[in-house]
Design a protein around this nucleic acid. Structure first.
Lengths: 200, 200
DNA sequence: AGCGTAACGAAACGGCAGGACCGTTTAACC
DNA sequence: GGTTAAACGGTCCTGCCGTTTCGTTACGCT
């Protein structure tokens, strides 16, 4: 557990290797999918020794988990539109755009698949969503303060309610949701919140 | 493509083998998860030749797809409570119960993972949801007819809106949703539908 | 009941993912 | 700039997944 390679000596080369491998893994994921994610192939594309990939990441799920952690760091700041519905719309649009993106959409599908197999990946996924949800929760809290939503509304629950139908559509239809779907997701979450469904 | 084993001569032995293998596969999924689904292991548990499993199902995803198709056949009839909200509650409860069940919950996780890798499995999954959603859509249509929901409401969209947060919770937290979560899912879908979000 | 063949089962085979070994490079510290 | 060991990379290899082969069983049909 201790002495994870890459943590003791995070100098120039080590960081370069990590960057190259994660980039290559993203490429493979986007164009070939999770099932064809071969660590040797990733190593070849990254122009890195196969041994290194196996030593540092160990398995496909480990690599995907690290890729997710890397993505969690570069999170976009949320917009503020002045109203809850506007903010939820912005959030829905952001999620939709993320899922529609070739690299990110493929990554999410892969991550979800990997999380059902591997506990470490599942933890990474949970942490990612906690961060994302916590980031957007304030817009709901502001809405409560402004009197747009009933007091006691569970802010995180509302944010999750926006994402849920979009991910559900991605998984059940296989294609990323379109703009009207994002609009409906925001509207639905807003309507439910106004009705007091998320009052704890 | 033609001459799929098991279709030409579906007599006693062939059917027995299919039953035993599907049962064993469900057991392995429930107790070891999708990642550890080894066809040789399944064959051993089913007391069936390894060759047979590979010949008839070919791969892990193929087996999972068949398992899903088998489950699709034994669908429970929906309840009718007399009100849209009551029916949606019943639906949410059914979904929750399904996801909480050890065998079925594990199966769904596996199917979702497999669907992201394999196109045939993805098709099987879509067909399954189409059937399930179409089965529950009438309760929404009845609600429209009774004047509980605005005319022009997309019945299937409402039904999907009930399931979405439950599946989302299963995937992002790794645990099956609880009873209050199911209640919220039904309430939220109802509130959004009343607000006219799903009017096409 | 008896025949033909679809489907099953045991064992041997092959390819490849994943790991072991060991020499080489280079980051970190003085 | 010199030293140390952390990390990289090439090569070989081993174990397992999936396949092929061929003999056996028993289902469907008349």
């Amino acid at each position: 557990m201790s002495a994870e390679p890459g943590t003791v000596r995070p100098g120039g080369r080590t960081a370069r290797v990590r960057t190259a491998v994660l980039r290559a893994a993203g490429d493979v994921l986007a164009e070939r999918g999770f099932a064809h994610l071969d660590l040797a192939d990733v190593a070849r594309r990254a122009e890195v020794g196969k041994t290194t990939v196996y030593r540092r990441w160990g398995s496909v799920t480990g690599l995907v988990a690290d890729l997710l952690a890397d993505m969690a760091e570069q999170s976009l700041p949320r917009e503020e539109t002045g109203s809850v519905l506007g903010d939820l719309r912005a959030n829905a649009s952001l999620v939709r755009w993320t899922l529609a993106d070739a690299r990110q959409g493929a990554l999410f599908r892969a991550v979800i698949a990997a999380a059902t197999c591997d506990e470490r990946t599942a933890q990474a996924l949970r942490r990612f969503y906690e961060v994302r949800v916590a980031e957007w929760a304030p817009c709901v809290e502001q809405g409560v303060a402004r009197g747009e939503l009933p007091p006691g509304t569970d802010a995180k629950a509302v944010v999750r309610a926006v994402s849920a139908p979009l991910y559900y559509e991605l998984l059940t239809t296989g294609t990323a949701p379109d703009t009207p779907a994002a609009e409906r997701a925001a509207q639905a979450a807003y309507a439910a919140a106004v009705a007091g469904v998320y009052v704890s």
